[in-house]
């Protein structure tokens, strides 16, 4: 166990927001190590600092104090170009509201990150088709987002997140806008990808369904990590978790 590769390391991170004259401390010292290839759920009520922590891990926001390492690189040290590269190559984002680019077809949405990464157009198209097949949309390449259902849009988003073979997939409430069964399909898809492609999936969620597939559940409350449940403990105490949220 000595050589566990930590893809994300969060060390003594605090984050203070200035809302007018009021200072709000969203994170009050968070330490977290995430092992590569795991499926992590970050749980917590709204306002707990969950999204803030999430944005830090995604390199979208910088901590007030403390350090965030992604693949042993301190993100506070990176300039705009390196951050863009990191977002493009290392991290795949999945959003609650899907956030597909409305004017582009499903295929173009998936190929966009590959174009950014400098891949040739034909190679990108070919890989895009392969990824869309992987998420089960083989007959919907040329549909625009508004011609797709919520679940299908989220599948396109999953394919897009995988475009540059990222090390991490960040999913912010990926099932928040989906109905129960579609949500379960997306969760199953993410779990499958995490297992088969060895991608680290980190998802922020309220969704109890996501707990069953998680390797680790991080509970956040009031800007602190309340506790971290491992998979084994979870399966024993699932009933209790159901009660507490």
């Amino acid at each position: 166990m000595a050589s566990v590769h930590h893809i994300v390391r969060v060390s003594k991170v605090t984050k203070t927001f200035h809302l007018g004259k009021v200072k709000v401390q969203a994170l009050k010292g968070v330490d977290l190590n995430i092992a590569a290839g795991h499926y992590i759920s970050i749980m917590g009520p709204s306002g707990s600092g969950k999204s803030t922590l999430f944005n830090m891990i995604g390199g979208l926001d910088k901590p007030t104090t403390g350090k965030v390492f992604i693949d042993e690189v301190d993100i506070a040290q990176l300039d705009a170009y390196e951050l863009a590269w990191l977002r493009c190559r290392k991290i795949g984002y999945i959003f609650q509201t899907f956030n597909l680019i409305q004017v582009m077809t499903a295929l173009e949405n998936v190929t966009l990150p590959m174009i950014f990464s400098g891949m040739h157009n034909d190679a990108a198209t070919e890989k895009g088709i392969r990824l869309l097949k992987l998420v089960g949309l083989e007959d919907r390449f040329l549909h625009k987002p508004f011609e797709l259902s919520g679940g299908q849009q989220q599948r396109v988003a999953v394919a897009r997140a995988l475009a540059n073979d990222p090390a991490i997939i960040l999913a912010d409430e990926p099932t928040g806008n989906l109905d129960l069964s579609t949500g379960e399909e997306i969760i199953a898809l993410l779990k499958l990808l995490s297992r088969e492609r060895k991608v680290t999936v980190i998802s922020a969620t309220h969704d109890i369904k996501m707990l069953n597939v998680s390797d680790q559940v991080v509970w956040i409350r009031d800007g602190r990590i309340e506790k971290i449940d491992e998979r084994e403990e979870l399966s024993i105490s699932v009933g209790r978790i159901g009660v507490r949220e």
Binding site: V73, D74, L78, W85, I115, S117, G118
Partner: peptide, 25 residues
């Protein structure tokens, strides 16, 4: 040293800065 990776077996090495959007695109 921040360009070096802890795990050399990874697909992409270190942090690079090359992100492009061709003019035609």
């Amino acid at each position: 040293d921040r360009y070096l990776l802890a795990d050399p077996a990874k697909r992409t090495s270190g942090v690079n800065r090359q992100v492009v959007l061709p003019f035609k695109k």
